[in-house]
Design a protein around this nucleic acid. Sequence first.
DNA 1: CTTATATATTTAAGAAAATTATATATATAA
DNA 2: TTATATATATAATTTTCTTAAATATATAAG
Lengths: 117, 117
Amino acid sequence: MLSKEFIRGTIRTIILKLLAQNKQMYGYEITQHVAQLSKNEIVLSYGALYPVLHKLESEGLLVTTTEVVDNRARKYYALTSEGKKVAKAKVSELQEFNKILTSILNDSKLSLKTSAA
Amino acid sequence: MLSKEFIRGTIRTIILKLLAQNKQMYGYEITQHVAQLSKNEIVLSYGALYPVLHKLESEGLLVTTTEVVDNRARKYYALTSEGKKVAKAKVSELQEFNKILTSILNDSKLSLKTSAA
DNA sequence: CTTATATATTTAAGAAAATTATATATATAA
DNA sequence: TTATATATATAATTTTCTTAAATATATAAG
């Protein structure tokens, strides 16, 4: 598994992206999805996941519906129309950020200065 | 400028990468470099930068030398041999993370379930 | 029947990281 | 003398994340 530090700052957007794609998902499902999509390289902890879901809900970007499946409660989260807009915008921004970051990380230029050493 | 949230978790690695490439840099120079490489889309604040530099130094990954240029003190940071190793490893990890994240963000599959709706 | 594992949500305590603002100081251009 | 650019640093606060624990059901293994 990759270092956990990298997921910082991206959790919100990952969640928004998955919900933009799947109409409705429950928390556990989101973590499993991320694990599966990343071949277990990225693991979303519950302590990080649920607070973000609740915050997105309080901001009006998500709505919830509770269903009982196999006698167990399951809370589905779905984007509101505002949430869809935000999801789209955030995903674009993160893609852009990643493009720039990748170019920085791949850059092998020596950045030689004009002043001679 | 892109949302600041995305830089969270990547600052350490960005700094290590720049130092791996430039032998020695001072704080202000690092922020200017990141701004320039990102066309001002990514801005590294001093409040984030300096604590990270000091931490990397305390961890033995960086050493500093102070020079006076134009009567102004300038503190140069350079990787130790341990720092070089860590830089290499962290850059690889972040590249890998970014690859996976990009694939998640680009994914347009509808993730249809076998159970009929 | 007991244990382990998988499913599922939530929260509390604490640590870590980042934002914002501020202090300090010099050089230079207007 | 004012503004802007260069340059480092820290304090206070907030946000975010980790880790751990609590709660609860289903199912498989023994």
